[in-house]
Design a binder for these strands. Sequence first.
DNA 1: CGATTCTTTGAAAACAGTCAATCTGTGTGG
DNA 2: CCACACAGATTGACTGTTTTCAAAGAATCG
Lengths: 194, 194
Amino acid sequence: MHELLIAHIKKHSTTPLTVADIEGIKKCFTLKKLRKRQFLLQEGEVCKYFAFIVKGAMRKYTVDEKGAEHIVALSVENWWIGDRESLTNSTPSKLNIDAWEDTNVLIATKDDFVTYVSPISAISEMLRELDYRHALALQKRIGSNISQSAEQRYYDLASTYPEFVQRFPQHIIASYLGITKETLSRVRNNAVKK
Amino acid sequence: MHELLIAHIKKHSTTPLTVADIEGIKKCFTLKKLRKRQFLLQEGEVCKYFAFIVKGAMRKYTVDEKGAEHIVALSVENWWIGDRESLTNSTPSKLNIDAWEDTNVLIATKDDFVTYVSPISAISEMLRELDYRHALALQKRIGSNISQSAEQRYYDLASTYPEFVQRFPQHIIASYLGITKETLSRVRNNAVKK
DNA sequence: CGATTCTTTGAAAACAGTCAATCTGTGTGG
DNA sequence: CCACACAGATTGACTGTTTTCAAAGAATCG
Protein backbone atom coordinates (compact mmCIF):
# COMPACT_ATOMS: atom_id res chain seq x y z
CA MET A 1 0.00 0.00 0.00
CA HIS A 2 2.71 2.46 0.93
CA GLU A 3 4.89 1.71 -2.07
CA LEU A 4 2.91 3.99 -4.34
CA LEU A 5 3.28 6.84 -1.89
CA ILE A 6 7.01 6.29 -1.53
CA ALA A 7 7.42 6.15 -5.30
CA HIS A 8 5.40 9.33 -5.60
CA ILE A 9 7.64 11.14 -3.13
CA LYS A 10 10.77 9.99 -4.94
CA LYS A 11 9.35 11.11 -8.23
CA HIS A 12 8.80 14.65 -7.01
CA SER A 13 12.03 15.25 -5.09
CA THR A 14 15.75 14.96 -5.62
CA THR A 15 16.81 14.38 -2.01
CA PRO A 16 17.06 10.63 -1.33
CA LEU A 17 14.85 9.02 1.28
CA THR A 18 16.63 7.15 4.06
CA VAL A 19 15.34 3.87 5.45
CA ALA A 20 14.38 5.75 8.59
CA ASP A 21 12.44 8.30 6.55
CA ILE A 22 10.48 5.54 4.88
CA GLU A 23 9.77 3.89 8.22
CA GLY A 24 8.52 7.19 9.60
CA ILE A 25 6.27 7.77 6.64
CA LYS A 26 4.82 4.29 6.84
CA LYS A 27 3.99 4.74 10.50
CA CYS A 28 2.15 8.00 9.93
CA PHE A 29 0.03 6.96 6.98
CA THR A 30 -2.71 4.43 7.55
CA LEU A 31 -5.00 2.92 4.98
CA LYS A 32 -8.61 3.95 4.84
CA LYS A 33 -11.09 2.34 2.48
CA LEU A 34 -13.95 4.40 1.16
CA ARG A 35 -16.96 3.04 -0.67
CA LYS A 36 -18.46 4.88 -3.57
CA ARG A 37 -20.29 8.00 -2.33
CA GLN A 38 -18.62 7.83 1.08
CA PHE A 39 -17.38 11.16 2.43
CA LEU A 40 -13.78 11.83 3.34
CA LEU A 41 -14.77 15.35 4.36
CA GLN A 42 -18.18 16.92 4.68
CA GLU A 43 -19.08 20.58 4.66
CA GLY A 44 -18.88 22.07 8.14
CA GLU A 45 -16.33 19.57 9.42
CA VAL A 46 -12.71 20.48 10.04
CA CYS A 47 -10.35 18.65 7.69
CA LYS A 48 -8.13 16.47 9.86
CA TYR A 49 -6.02 14.51 7.40
CA PHE A 50 -3.51 14.71 4.66
CA ALA A 51 -4.75 12.09 2.24
CA PHE A 52 -3.10 10.40 -0.69
CA ILE A 53 -5.18 8.39 -3.15
CA VAL A 54 -3.79 4.89 -3.72
CA LYS A 55 -6.70 3.58 -5.73
CA GLY A 56 -9.96 5.06 -6.94
CA ALA A 57 -11.39 8.43 -7.87
CA MET A 58 -12.73 11.30 -5.79
CA ARG A 59 -14.45 14.61 -6.22
CA LYS A 60 -14.26 17.84 -4.28
CA TYR A 61 -17.29 20.11 -4.52
CA THR A 62 -19.42 22.81 -2.97
CA VAL A 63 -23.20 22.81 -2.65
CA ASP A 64 -25.01 26.11 -3.22
CA GLU A 65 -28.23 27.45 -1.65
CA LYS A 66 -30.29 25.74 -4.33
CA GLY A 67 -28.70 22.39 -3.60
CA ALA A 68 -26.70 22.30 -6.82
CA GLU A 69 -23.23 20.78 -6.68
CA HIS A 70 -20.24 22.60 -8.15
CA ILE A 71 -17.19 20.45 -8.81
CA VAL A 72 -14.07 22.20 -7.57
CA ALA A 73 -11.59 19.41 -8.32
CA LEU A 74 -11.38 15.81 -9.47
CA SER A 75 -8.67 13.43 -8.34
CA VAL A 76 -7.52 9.90 -9.03
CA GLU A 77 -4.62 7.65 -7.99
CA ASN A 78 -1.39 9.39 -7.01
CA TRP A 79 -3.06 12.65 -6.11
CA TRP A 80 -3.25 14.30 -2.74
CA ILE A 81 -6.66 15.37 -1.57
CA GLY A 82 -8.01 17.45 1.28
CA ASP A 83 -8.93 21.00 2.17
CA ARG A 84 -5.67 22.75 2.82
CA GLU A 85 -7.33 25.86 4.18
CA SER A 86 -9.43 23.96 6.70
CA LEU A 87 -6.52 21.74 7.63
CA THR A 88 -3.99 24.47 8.27
CA ASN A 89 -6.34 26.88 10.03
CA SER A 90 -8.56 24.29 11.74
CA THR A 91 -11.61 26.07 10.39
CA PRO A 92 -14.82 24.38 9.24
CA SER A 93 -14.61 23.44 5.59
CA LYS A 94 -16.97 24.71 2.92
CA LEU A 95 -16.10 21.72 0.77
CA ASN A 96 -17.32 18.19 0.40
CA ILE A 97 -14.97 15.44 -0.63
CA ASP A 98 -16.34 12.04 -1.47
CA ALA A 99 -15.38 8.89 -3.33
CA TRP A 100 -16.75 8.43 -6.82
CA GLU A 101 -15.37 4.92 -7.08
CA ASP A 102 -14.45 2.57 -4.27
CA THR A 103 -11.26 4.22 -3.13
CA ASN A 104 -8.25 3.54 -0.93
CA VAL A 105 -6.53 6.50 0.65
CA LEU A 106 -3.52 6.76 2.92
CA ILE A 107 -4.22 9.27 5.63
CA ALA A 108 -1.97 11.02 8.14
CA THR A 109 -3.23 13.31 10.86
CA LYS A 110 -2.09 16.89 10.77
CA ASP A 111 -0.05 16.41 13.96
CA ASP A 112 1.73 13.33 12.68
CA PHE A 113 2.35 14.96 9.37
CA VAL A 114 3.78 18.14 10.81
CA THR A 115 5.85 16.36 13.45
CA TYR A 116 7.22 13.39 11.56
CA VAL A 117 6.67 13.80 7.86
CA SER A 118 7.06 17.39 6.75
CA PRO A 119 10.50 17.79 8.37
CA ILE A 120 11.87 15.18 5.94
CA SER A 121 13.60 17.27 3.32
CA ALA A 122 12.47 15.14 0.38
CA ILE A 123 8.92 15.76 1.57
CA SER A 124 9.20 19.51 1.89
CA GLU A 125 10.82 19.58 -1.51
CA MET A 126 7.97 17.52 -2.92
CA LEU A 127 5.35 19.76 -1.31
CA ARG A 128 6.93 22.85 -2.82
CA GLU A 129 7.04 21.15 -6.20
CA LEU A 130 3.41 20.08 -6.00
CA ASP A 131 2.27 23.48 -4.75
CA TYR A 132 4.02 25.02 -7.69
CA ARG A 133 2.42 22.66 -10.19
CA HIS A 134 -0.93 23.10 -8.55
CA ALA A 135 -0.70 26.87 -8.90
CA LEU A 136 0.20 26.51 -12.58
CA ALA A 137 -2.72 24.19 -13.18
CA LEU A 138 -5.11 26.58 -11.44
CA GLN A 139 -3.76 29.47 -13.46
CA LYS A 140 -4.30 27.53 -16.65
CA ARG A 141 -7.82 26.61 -15.66
CA ILE A 142 -8.64 30.26 -15.00
CA GLY A 143 -7.15 31.20 -18.34
CA SER A 144 -9.37 28.76 -20.15
CA ASN A 145 -12.42 29.81 -18.14
CA ILE A 146 -12.12 33.48 -18.97
CA SER A 147 -11.06 33.19 -22.58
CA GLN A 148 -12.38 30.01 -24.15
CA SER A 149 -15.72 28.61 -25.27
CA ALA A 150 -17.36 25.65 -23.58
CA GLU A 151 -16.30 23.47 -26.48
CA GLN A 152 -12.63 24.40 -26.36
CA ARG A 153 -12.56 23.94 -22.60
CA TYR A 154 -14.01 20.47 -22.89
CA TYR A 155 -11.43 19.36 -25.43
CA ASP A 156 -8.64 20.90 -23.43
CA LEU A 157 -9.76 18.93 -20.41
CA ALA A 158 -10.19 15.75 -22.40
CA SER A 159 -6.65 15.99 -23.74
CA THR A 160 -5.01 17.11 -20.49
CA TYR A 161 -6.81 14.66 -18.21
CA PRO A 162 -8.28 11.89 -20.35
CA GLU A 163 -8.78 9.74 -17.26
CA PHE A 164 -11.30 12.24 -15.92
CA VAL A 165 -13.47 11.94 -19.00
CA GLN A 166 -13.23 8.17 -18.85
CA ARG A 167 -13.96 7.74 -15.18
CA PHE A 168 -16.45 10.45 -14.30
CA PRO A 169 -19.91 10.78 -15.87
CA GLN A 170 -20.62 13.75 -18.09
CA HIS A 171 -22.68 15.67 -15.59
CA ILE A 172 -19.67 15.76 -13.27
CA ILE A 173 -17.35 16.89 -16.06
CA ALA A 174 -19.89 19.54 -17.05
CA SER A 175 -20.00 20.89 -13.52
CA TYR A 176 -16.19 20.96 -13.40
CA LEU A 177 -16.22 23.04 -16.57
CA GLY A 178 -18.93 25.34 -15.27
CA ILE A 179 -21.57 24.36 -17.83
CA THR A 180 -24.76 22.28 -17.67
CA LYS A 181 -24.88 18.62 -18.59
CA GLU A 182 -27.23 19.41 -21.50
CA THR A 183 -24.78 21.90 -22.97
CA LEU A 184 -21.94 19.40 -22.69
CA SER A 185 -24.04 16.75 -24.38
CA ARG A 186 -24.80 19.10 -27.28
CA VAL A 187 -21.18 20.20 -27.59
CA ARG A 188 -20.10 16.59 -27.92
CA ASN A 189 -22.77 15.77 -30.46
CA ASN A 190 -21.97 18.77 -32.62
CA ALA A 191 -18.34 17.75 -32.72
CA VAL A 192 -19.20 14.26 -33.96
CA LYS A 193 -20.98 15.78 -36.96
CA LYS A 194 -17.98 17.87 -37.96
CA MET B 1 12.71 52.21 -1.69
CA HIS B 2 13.63 48.93 -0.06
CA GLU B 3 11.75 49.64 3.16
CA LEU B 4 8.45 48.52 1.70
CA LEU B 5 9.96 45.24 0.61
CA ILE B 6 11.56 44.63 4.00
CA ALA B 7 8.28 45.44 5.74
CA HIS B 8 6.49 43.07 3.38
CA ILE B 9 8.88 40.24 4.20
CA LYS B 10 8.50 40.83 7.93
CA LYS B 11 4.73 40.85 7.59
CA HIS B 12 4.67 37.42 5.96
CA SER B 13 7.20 35.57 8.10
CA THR B 14 7.91 34.91 11.74
CA THR B 15 11.68 34.41 11.52
CA PRO B 16 13.45 37.70 12.27
CA LEU B 17 15.68 39.30 9.62
CA THR B 18 19.26 40.00 10.61
CA VAL B 19 21.08 43.15 9.58
CA ALA B 20 23.13 41.00 7.20
CA ASP B 21 19.94 39.57 5.66
CA ILE B 22 18.65 43.06 5.02
CA GLU B 23 21.92 44.11 3.48
CA GLY B 24 21.90 41.08 1.20
CA ILE B 25 18.35 41.78 0.09
CA LYS B 26 19.12 45.43 -0.63
CA LYS B 27 22.08 44.46 -2.78
CA CYS B 28 20.08 42.04 -4.89
CA PHE B 29 17.06 44.22 -5.55
CA THR B 30 17.50 47.24 -7.78
CA LEU B 31 14.91 49.81 -8.64
CA LYS B 32 13.41 49.90 -12.09
CA LYS B 33 10.99 52.58 -13.18
CA LEU B 34 8.35 51.73 -15.74
CA ARG B 35 6.21 54.21 -17.56
CA LYS B 36 2.56 53.51 -18.23
CA ARG B 37 2.27 50.86 -20.97
CA GLN B 38 5.92 49.83 -20.64
CA PHE B 39 6.54 46.09 -20.65
CA LEU B 40 8.24 44.26 -17.84
CA LEU B 41 7.87 41.05 -19.79
CA GLN B 42 6.68 40.47 -23.33
CA GLU B 43 5.34 37.29 -24.87
CA GLY B 44 8.15 35.13 -26.22
CA GLU B 45 10.81 36.49 -23.85
CA VAL B 46 12.17 34.50 -20.94
CA CYS B 47 11.27 36.03 -17.60
CA LYS B 48 14.54 37.02 -15.93
CA TYR B 49 13.48 38.76 -12.74
CA PHE B 50 11.67 38.41 -9.49
CA ALA B 51 9.84 41.72 -9.25
CA PHE B 52 8.15 43.45 -6.36
CA ILE B 53 5.89 46.42 -6.96
CA VAL B 54 6.78 49.42 -4.80
CA LYS B 55 4.45 51.89 -6.47
CA GLY B 56 1.98 51.66 -9.32
CA ALA B 57 -0.26 49.08 -10.95
CA MET B 58 0.41 46.34 -13.46
CA ARG B 59 -1.46 43.81 -15.53
CA LYS B 60 -0.58 40.34 -16.70
CA TYR B 61 -2.36 39.12 -19.81
CA THR B 62 -2.36 36.88 -22.85
CA VAL B 63 -3.20 37.87 -26.41
CA ASP B 64 -5.22 35.39 -28.48
CA GLU B 65 -5.16 34.72 -32.26
CA LYS B 66 -7.71 37.46 -32.81
CA GLY B 67 -5.59 39.99 -30.99
CA ALA B 68 -7.89 40.18 -27.98
CA GLU B 69 -6.29 40.59 -24.58
CA HIS B 70 -7.26 38.35 -21.67
CA ILE B 71 -6.32 39.64 -18.24
CA VAL B 72 -4.78 36.88 -16.16
CA ALA B 73 -3.91 38.94 -13.10
CA LEU B 74 -3.86 42.49 -11.80
CA SER B 75 -1.33 43.73 -9.27
CA VAL B 76 -0.60 46.87 -7.28
CA GLU B 77 1.85 47.94 -4.58
CA ASN B 78 3.20 45.20 -2.33
CA TRP B 79 2.58 42.44 -4.81
CA TRP B 80 5.10 40.25 -6.50
CA ILE B 81 4.86 39.96 -10.24
CA GLY B 82 6.46 37.80 -12.90
CA ASP B 83 5.97 34.57 -14.78
CA ARG B 84 7.00 31.87 -12.37
CA GLU B 85 6.88 29.15 -14.99
CA SER B 86 9.10 31.00 -17.45
CA LEU B 87 11.45 32.09 -14.68
CA THR B 88 12.00 28.68 -13.13
CA ASN B 89 12.22 26.74 -16.38
CA SER B 90 13.85 29.42 -18.52
CA THR B 91 11.21 28.88 -21.17
CA PRO B 92 9.67 31.60 -23.35
CA SER B 93 6.68 33.16 -21.66
CA LYS B 94 3.20 33.17 -23.09
CA LEU B 95 2.36 36.16 -20.95
CA ASN B 96 2.68 39.90 -21.24
CA ILE B 97 3.23 42.04 -18.18
CA ASP B 98 3.05 45.79 -18.46
CA ALA B 99 2.56 48.84 -16.29
CA TRP B 100 -0.88 50.38 -16.21
CA GLU B 101 0.29 53.34 -14.17
CA ASP B 102 3.81 54.71 -13.89
CA THR B 103 5.31 52.03 -11.71
CA ASN B 104 8.39 51.35 -9.61
CA VAL B 105 9.49 47.77 -9.17
CA LEU B 106 12.36 46.23 -7.30
CA ILE B 107 13.91 43.51 -9.41
CA ALA B 108 16.35 40.74 -8.60
CA THR B 109 17.81 38.40 -11.18
CA LYS B 110 17.04 34.75 -10.82
CA ASP B 111 20.67 33.96 -9.99
CA ASP B 112 20.94 36.60 -7.30
CA PHE B 113 17.62 35.59 -5.88
CA VAL B 114 18.45 31.91 -5.70
CA THR B 115 21.97 32.45 -4.40
CA TYR B 116 21.52 35.24 -1.90
CA VAL B 117 17.86 35.75 -1.14
CA SER B 118 15.93 32.53 -1.10
CA PRO B 119 18.30 30.84 1.40
CA ILE B 120 17.22 33.41 4.02
CA SER B 121 14.76 31.50 6.13
CA ALA B 122 12.35 34.42 6.54
CA ILE B 123 12.22 34.58 2.76
CA SER B 124 11.50 30.94 2.18
CA GLU B 125 8.86 31.12 4.86
CA MET B 126 7.33 34.13 3.16
CA LEU B 127 7.36 32.44 -0.22
CA ARG B 128 5.56 29.42 1.15
CA GLU B 129 3.00 31.66 2.80
CA LEU B 130 2.42 33.65 -0.38
CA ASP B 131 2.23 30.53 -2.54
CA TYR B 132 -0.36 29.18 -0.18
CA ARG B 133 -2.44 32.34 -0.29
CA HIS B 134 -2.06 32.55 -4.01
CA ALA B 135 -3.39 29.02 -4.44
CA LEU B 136 -6.37 29.83 -2.22
CA ALA B 137 -7.13 32.96 -4.20
CA LEU B 138 -6.93 31.06 -7.48
CA GLN B 139 -9.19 28.36 -6.11
CA LYS B 140 -11.71 30.97 -5.06
CA ARG B 141 -11.58 32.65 -8.44
CA ILE B 142 -12.27 29.33 -10.16
CA GLY B 143 -15.14 28.69 -7.80
CA SER B 144 -16.76 31.99 -8.68
CA ASN B 145 -16.12 31.49 -12.38
CA ILE B 146 -17.85 28.13 -12.54
CA SER B 147 -20.74 28.83 -10.22
CA GLN B 148 -21.63 32.51 -10.19
CA SER B 149 -23.24 35.00 -12.53
CA ALA B 150 -21.34 37.91 -14.06
CA GLU B 151 -23.04 40.26 -11.63
CA GLN B 152 -22.09 38.32 -8.52
CA ARG B 153 -18.52 37.97 -9.73
CA TYR B 154 -18.22 41.69 -10.24
CA TYR B 155 -19.45 42.51 -6.77
CA ASP B 156 -17.22 39.86 -5.25
CA LEU B 157 -14.24 41.40 -6.97
CA ALA B 158 -15.25 44.93 -6.03
CA SER B 159 -15.49 43.99 -2.37
CA THR B 160 -12.36 41.80 -2.28
CA TYR B 161 -10.12 44.12 -4.27
CA PRO B 162 -11.71 47.59 -4.28
CA GLU B 163 -8.40 49.08 -5.46
CA PHE B 164 -8.66 47.17 -8.72
CA VAL B 165 -12.01 48.70 -9.53
CA GLN B 166 -10.71 52.14 -8.66
CA ARG B 167 -7.45 51.96 -10.55
CA PHE B 168 -8.19 49.93 -13.66
CA PRO B 169 -10.74 50.89 -16.32
CA GLN B 170 -13.84 48.79 -16.74
CA HIS B 171 -12.73 47.03 -19.89
CA ILE B 172 -9.76 45.64 -17.98
CA ILE B 173 -11.93 44.52 -15.08
CA ALA B 174 -14.37 42.94 -17.53
CA SER B 175 -11.58 40.98 -19.17
CA TYR B 176 -10.36 39.82 -15.76
CA LEU B 177 -13.86 38.56 -15.03
CA GLY B 178 -14.14 36.87 -18.41
CA ILE B 179 -16.99 39.05 -19.73
CA THR B 180 -17.19 41.85 -22.28
CA LYS B 181 -16.98 45.52 -21.37
CA GLU B 182 -20.53 46.05 -22.61
CA THR B 183 -21.88 43.37 -20.30
CA LEU B 184 -20.05 44.87 -17.35
CA SER B 185 -21.41 48.31 -18.16
CA ARG B 186 -24.95 46.93 -18.24
CA VAL B 187 -24.51 44.96 -15.04
CA ARG B 188 -23.42 48.11 -13.24
CA ASN B 189 -26.27 50.18 -14.61
CA ASN B 190 -28.88 47.61 -13.71
CA ALA B 191 -27.62 47.55 -10.15
CA VAL B 192 -27.97 51.32 -9.80
CA LYS B 193 -31.64 51.07 -10.67
CA LYS B 194 -32.32 48.49 -7.99
C1' DC C 1 -8.60 72.14 -29.05
C1' DG C 2 -8.03 67.52 -31.23
C1' DA C 3 -6.92 62.85 -30.44
C1' DT C 4 -7.30 58.99 -27.86
C1' DT C 5 -9.29 56.19 -24.58
C1' DC C 6 -13.16 54.81 -22.02
C1' DT C 7 -18.10 54.12 -21.32
C1' DT C 8 -22.74 53.66 -22.63
C1' DT C 9 -26.62 52.31 -25.54
C1' DG C 10 -29.35 49.80 -29.03
C1' DA C 11 -30.65 45.96 -31.84
C1' DA C 12 -29.79 41.48 -33.62
C1' DA C 13 -27.58 37.11 -33.26
C1' DA C 14 -25.35 33.52 -30.82
C1' DC C 15 -25.03 30.98 -26.87
C1' DA C 16 -26.14 28.64 -22.67
C1' DG C 17 -29.63 27.50 -19.26
C1' DT C 18 -34.12 25.45 -17.85
C1' DC C 19 -37.67 22.20 -17.83
C1' DA C 20 -39.75 18.15 -19.26
C1' DA C 21 -39.84 14.02 -21.82
C1' DT C 22 -37.57 10.12 -23.66
C1' DC C 23 -33.97 6.80 -24.35
C1' DT C 24 -30.13 3.84 -22.81
C1' DG C 25 -27.60 0.86 -20.14
C1' DT C 26 -26.75 -1.40 -15.60
C1' DG C 27 -27.70 -3.88 -11.89
C1' DT C 28 -30.87 -5.80 -8.23
C1' DG C 29 -34.49 -8.40 -6.40
C1' DG C 30 -38.37 -11.33 -7.19
C1' DC D 1 -34.35 -14.69 -16.41
C1' DC D 2 -37.32 -11.05 -16.48
C1' DA D 3 -39.11 -6.74 -14.69
C1' DC D 4 -38.20 -2.78 -12.65
C1' DA D 5 -35.70 0.89 -10.69
C1' DC D 6 -32.05 3.96 -11.17
C1' DA D 7 -28.47 6.72 -12.94
C1' DG D 8 -26.88 8.76 -16.92
C1' DA D 9 -27.35 10.77 -21.63
C1' DT D 10 -29.96 12.90 -25.11
C1' DT D 11 -33.42 15.82 -27.34
C1' DG D 12 -36.82 19.57 -28.12
C1' DA D 13 -39.00 23.82 -27.13
C1' DC D 14 -38.54 27.81 -24.66
C1' DT D 15 -36.34 31.48 -21.91
C1' DG D 16 -32.85 34.30 -20.57
C1' DT D 17 -28.24 35.98 -20.71
C1' DT D 18 -24.16 37.40 -23.07
C1' DT D 19 -21.84 38.65 -27.22
C1' DT D 20 -21.28 41.20 -31.30
C1' DC D 21 -21.27 45.16 -34.04
C1' DA D 22 -22.01 49.82 -34.69
C1' DA D 23 -22.66 54.29 -33.10
C1' DA D 24 -22.47 57.94 -30.10
C1' DG D 25 -21.48 60.21 -25.72
C1' DA D 26 -17.99 61.30 -21.72
C1' DA D 27 -13.57 61.91 -19.99
C1' DT D 28 -8.70 62.58 -20.17
C1' DC D 29 -4.30 64.11 -21.94
C1' DG D 30 -0.88 66.36 -24.62
